[in-house]
Design a protein around this nucleic acid. Sequence first.
DNA 1: CAAGATTTGTTCGTATGTATA
DNA 2: GTATACATACGAACAAATCTT
Lengths: 237, 237
Amino acid sequence: MAARDLQERIKKLILDRRLPSGAPLPTEPELMVFLGASRNSVREALKALQAMGIVEIRHGFGTYVGPMSLAPMVEGLAFRTVVGHYRGEDSLLQLLELREAVESGLAARLAGRLPERDLVELDALVRQMEREAAEGVGLAATDRAFHATLYRGLDNALLSEVLEAFWDAFHRVRAGLATGPQDPEVTCRQHREILDAVRSGDAKRAERAIRDHFDNVRTRLSTTTPHDPHTRPNERV
Amino acid sequence: MAARDLQERIKKLILDRRLPSGAPLPTEPELMVFLGASRNSVREALKALQAMGIVEIRHGFGTYVGPMSLAPMVEGLAFRTVVGHYRGEDSLLQLLELREAVESGLAARLAGRLPERDLVELDALVRQMEREAAEGVGLAATDRAFHATLYRGLDNALLSEVLEAFWDAFHRVRAGLATGPQDPEVTCRQHREILDAVRSGDAKRAERAIRDHFDNVRTRLSTTTPHDPHTRPNERV
DNA sequence: CAAGATTTGTTCGTATGTATA
DNA sequence: GTATACATACGAACAAATCTT
């Protein structure tokens, strides 16, 4: 039996039985008889599906339909970027420009179309960033929330998840490398400008605000050594 | 030994030894002693990494570092979209709108900045689409090439690959469902307009051309049945 | 708390298919 | 054709985690 077939048949099983996320899959012995394969082959297929986020395996409990999140994509993108970085490619910069390309186009579309509810939420997030900057705490989580909230108004769950996945991959890679010093105050000011621009309804201004923000990140990126010798766990964040 | 660790250690091995794509990995027995795990555990870890496109396993030959392509992302996105479609969600529409959001922003940026070399290539592709439309052949491959060539000028390999991945996932899902009738002539005209708009340097016109094109695909999409019967519910659990 | 049942995690041994030389 | 090296597959057993009684 080709292992590739097993994966396809398990996926087909999920589709045919209309199993929702979180639903229990047949146990390994049951899958053995259903698929006519040995336990090891079944397990290898399940492992591959788990890596793709299609299936979730809980030790001593059971196998379940996965949440279908884009987490595996983050994993793959991050590794691909790290490998490219070690090869001397500007993979991290490309990832940043991918984010900029998507977000700059979206921000222009969002200008003036965001409901007041989201605007006040974004305002609260910027204030929180300012507090965190004053206290010297890292503001990555708040930055992530800001971008996520910004594009939530598009009412496209897939789009939101993809953008969050790009954010995660970028920051995971950047955190693993020695990065230039942050300037939290500038970051806060730029997020404030993005919010103001979107609120004003000026599409061009919103796009420029996004580009300024990414420009800032880019310059901090280029000040780091292109590829540092061995992965010394970062001392500075 | 946690299987999760094995994957991480194999990834670390690739990084530490600076193995390029296509380089041979240690054989399974070698990995067994290197990782201190049994053959089955090693195999399960390799299967998971293969699903993520990080390694490539060739039967009877060996294990190699994968091409780090985004193919696994296509796989995951496609399945996620199919599942969502069967659940009655508008997942396919969301995928289409994701493409539209990205491409419309990029087309505006590309307007007037594409080198003549790419423009003539795009022109040739549109002509080929027109030939294929006249002959009644499918023009999906040419459509894919058009979009790929269009965004090649951005000089960002990652961005190009991501867009191609979105294209692949969308068309893989759409091909598996009953879709409304194509209208190749309209498709040709719209691609011609996209090309003309980009050549003219009019950003707004380019963005509108892209949106018109996607609008066309969207209307064809909504004429299909939301979810058609695909399985006979007479199967035992 | 404790014992037992269920389920996944890990290992070993063995046989088979496949590609290279 | 033969030999070698490798991945593929199977079966059985035990370990570890989780839930139920």
